[in-house]
Amino acid sequence: MEAAAASTSQARGWSSLPTDVLVLILGNLRWSSHPSVALVCRHWRYAASLCPFYPAWITPLLLNTAEVGTANIRYYSPYYDKNFKVDDTLKVPSAKICCSTGRHLKMRADKSLVFDIDLVSGALVEVLPQKPFMLFNFVVSDRDERLFGIRAMFTIEIACAIRTNGDEWEDWNLAENSPDWSQLRASPGTNPVLHNSLLYLLAQDGRLAVYDLCRHHEGFKILDKPNSFGFKCEDSYLLESNQGELMVVAIERRGKKVHLVKLNEQSMEWEKVDSLHSQTVFTRSLTTMMKKTKFNRMQNMIFLPRFYQWPETVHVDLVARDGELAFVPKLPFCADTYLDTCGTNIWSYELAHGAATKEFWGTERADYSIWVDFGDN
């Protein structure tokens, strides 16, 4: 009798725990452990589906709003092909997005101010220094230690502000030198990029201007090389690769072809890159980034914020728990969050095969959008 009871107890084991008990256990585990729990057996997988969440760190997200400063925040995930709508607003009416660093978003308002917003709490963290009598086209943040404001119309001007040891910002310091804009027409959609402690500004034809903070009074200097990309493109976006190389995503008209080139800093010429290997590029916003991914269907891809149809919207809270961020649906939501999705509605280009996943025609751009990376803290 005792042997039979022991055998029955052993047979039941962990896999037969009541669903409500499993849900309570899952509620006390880190979100990143849930996929492993779901792989144990069908019963545990079902319990995991009753605790739905979508990791916010899994890939970069496209933050977009219908109207900057007033509408609710939406994050598009190219992995899940869903929009996650958060009730918080950007709370800065009439402000325009500048740049992002991790969970922090910089926005520029009409009253000559730059705001720093915490995207997780929704709080307005601080108001950064007023502008020095000029209208910035670009704002670049260096890990919140330095701030650069660039004007690239008619002249190329730059101002910098530095955070002091007392955690306050110095006043803007405007550089003296201002090259003629006609000498180098900045690519209108690409932010200047910090690379090896220098700030690079990309021209429409592939030429570069460079700024050295140690020689601040000189402002931007236009380089003799590189001369151009060697081909025509409609849009071009500058980024620094994971290997510390200066690269450009160059897009022909209507996405007919997408080129990736890197700067050979010995010869100062652009060289073609044929493969991203296990990496992914997210571009065509004021933030262009390259990220390593473990998802095969996203490797060697370039994603642009253009959609064939508006993705499904899930109303969520953006929740921080044990150092992890996740989108948690507001209403009971039974969905299998662990299955890899088959396809997306976002336009993408596979660099290795030199072709888009779908035709560019019929896509619609997401206005007021920027790629943000909650995995970059």
Results as ranks from 00 to 15, higher is better:
121 S>A: 06
321 R>S: 15
224 D>A: 14
96 K>V: 14
82 K>R: 14
100 S>A: 12
372 V>G: 00
99 C>K: 05
120 V>S: 07
150 I>F: 02
93 P>M: 03
322 D>N: 11
15 S>N: 15
37 V>I: 14
352 A>W: 08
288 T>V: 05
297 R>D: 12
85 K>V: 11
317 D>H: 05
240 E>F: 07
244 G>Y: 01
211 Y>M: 04
101 T>D: 12
183 Q>N: 14
31 W>D: 12
22 L>N: 07
241 S>G: 00
216 H>N: 10
192 P>R: 05
111 K>E: 14
175 A>D: 03
326 A>G: 10
303 F>H: 02
364 E>P: 00
164 T>E: 07
59 T>F: 11
284 R>W: 08
92 V>D: 05
92 V>A: 15
376 D>A: 13
119 L>T: 01
251 I>P: 00
274 D>G: 15
217 H>W: 12
171 D>C: 08
256 K>D: 15
135 L>A: 03
242 N>Y: 00
47 A>W: 12
209 A>Y: 04
146 R>Q: 09
17 L>D: 03
266 Q>W: 04
191 N>L: 04
212 D>Y: 00
357 T>E: 15
281 V>Y: 12
362 G>D: 03
291 K>N: 06
190 T>G: 04
155 T>H: 14
355 A>Q: 14
184 L>Y: 00
152 A>P: 01
63 L>M: 13
178 S>R: 15
86 V>M: 07
288 T>P: 04
